[in-house]
C-alpha cells in the first residue's frame, strides 16, 4: 500500500469513526531533519515498524525499534526523535482517541465491544506497564493492514469490522506486553512483581481477572499457580497483605480505623472489623488499645 495519512476532521474516510484520530503509513527514502519532533497528544498512539531501524524517545527515554516492533505511547506522553530526525524505512501508525480517567487509567469508548470490566482492565494494564515497546509483534502489523483495507474498501459491514479490529489490536497489544514482561519461566519472580503492585495499590478493589491479566495469564491457570505457590487463593493472599498492613497502621495513633479500612482496601470499617476479628480474635479498636506505640 502507498503512503497516506488520514486525519479526523479532515479526511472523510474517518467520519464514521470519531475515535480514530489519525491513521497512516509512511515510507521514508532519505534521512530527513525536523520532521519527527517530540510531541504530546491526548491520543493513545501505536507505531508499527515495517522496515528500517528507528531510534525514538518515549517519555524522554531512548528506545530502538526494528521491523515487527510496536511503540505504545500513552496519552499525554511525549514521543518523537531527537532533532526531529526521521531515519530511512517505513512504518504505520494509528492514534486512538481514548477516554482518560482521573486516576490516569484509560477506557475505550462506546465503539468498543469490550465489556466495561475488560475495557477497564486493559486500560489499567497498559497504564501500569513500564516498557512502551512490544518486540517481534508482527500480528499488530497484520491487524493494522486489515484496518487500512477496510477503511478504503468500504465493503459491507466495514464499520463493525474496523471497530472489531481496533479492539483486537488493544487486546493483542495488552497480551503481548504482559507476556513480554512475564515470560513464563519464573513464577516466583512474577508473583513478587504482582505482590509489589498489589501493595502499592492496596486500596483498589482488585478482581482475580485483573490480577491474572496483569501478569499475562488466564484466570484459571493464574489461580492454580498462585494456590500451589503460596497456599492461598489470590483473593485470600490479598486479604493477608491487607490485614498485615492494617496491623502496622493500627499501631500508629494518627489515623482513624475507618481510614485504615479504606486505605487497605476494605469496603467499610464494618467489613474490616469482621475480617480482622475473624482472623485475630480482636476488634481493630481493641487491638489498637493493646498495641498503641504511645502507650
Amino acid at each position: 500500500m502507498n503512503q497516506f495519512v488520514l486525519q479526523q476532521g479532515k479526511s472523510p474516510e474517518l467520519r464514521l469513526f470519531p475515535h480514530l484520530l489519525e491513521v497512516g503509513i509512511r515510507k521514508n527514502g532519505a534521512i530527513q531533519l525536523n520532521t519527527f519532533s517530540a510531541t504530546k497528544t491526548e491520543a493513545l498512539r501505536l507505531y508499527y515498524i515495517i522496515d528500517g531501524k528507528y531510534e525514538w524517545r518515549i517519555d524522554q527515554q531512548p528506545y530502538l525499534f526494528y521491523p515487527g516492533d510496536v511503540a505504545v505511547v500513552m496519552p499525554g506522553i511525549s514521543f518523537g526523535s531527537d532533532n526531529g530526525v526521521l531515519e530511512i524505512g517505513s512504518f504505520t501508525w494509528i492514534h486512538l482517541g481514548i477516554q482518560q480517567l482521573e486516576n490516569g487509567h484509560i477506557l475505550p469508548g462506546k465503539w468498543s465491544g469490550l465489556s466495561e470490566n475488560e475495557g477497564a482492565a486493559i486500560g489499567k494494564i497498559l497504564s501500569l506497564n513500564s516498557s512502551p515497546v512490544c518486540t517481534g509483534f508482527t500480528d499488530a502489523g497484520k491487524i493494522l493492514k486489515g484496518i487500512h483495507a477496510e477503511l478504503f474498501g468500504h465493503e459491507i459491514g466495514y464499520q463493525a469490522r474496523i471497530n472489531h479490529q481496533v479492539d483486537e489490536l488493544l487486546i493483542q497489544v495488552t497480551r503481548h506486553m504482559t507476556k513480554q514482561s512475564h515470560p513464563g519461566r519464573d513464577f516466583p519472580k512474577t508473583f513478587m512483581r504482582l505482590e509489589e503492585v498489589l501493595r502499592e495499590n492496596l486500596s483498589h478493589q482488585w478482581t482475580v481477572e485483573e490480577m491474572a491479566a496483569l501478569v499475562g495469564m488466564g484466570t484459571t491457570l493464574f489461580t492454580e499457580r498462585v494456590k500451589s505457590f503460596s497456599g492461598f487463593s489470590p483473593i485470600n493472599y490479598l486479604i493477608n497483605i491487607r490485614i498485615s498492613e492494617a496491623i502496622k497502621l493500627l499501631k500508629r495513633p494518627d489515623i482513624s480505623v475507618t481510614d485504615i479500612a479504606l486505605d487497605t482496601g476494605f469496603y467499610s470499617s464494618q467489613h474490616f472489623s469482621t475480617t480482622f476479628k475473624k482472623l485475630t480474635g480482636f476488634q481493630p479498636s481493641e487491638f489498637r488499645k493493646n498495641h498503641l506505640r504511645t502507650k
Binding site: F232, N240, S244, L279
Partner: peptide
Amino acid sequence: QDPEQIFITTLYV
C-alpha cells in the same frame, strides 16, 4: 521479612 505478615499468615493457615 515482615513480622506482621508472618504472624497473620501463621494465624490464617
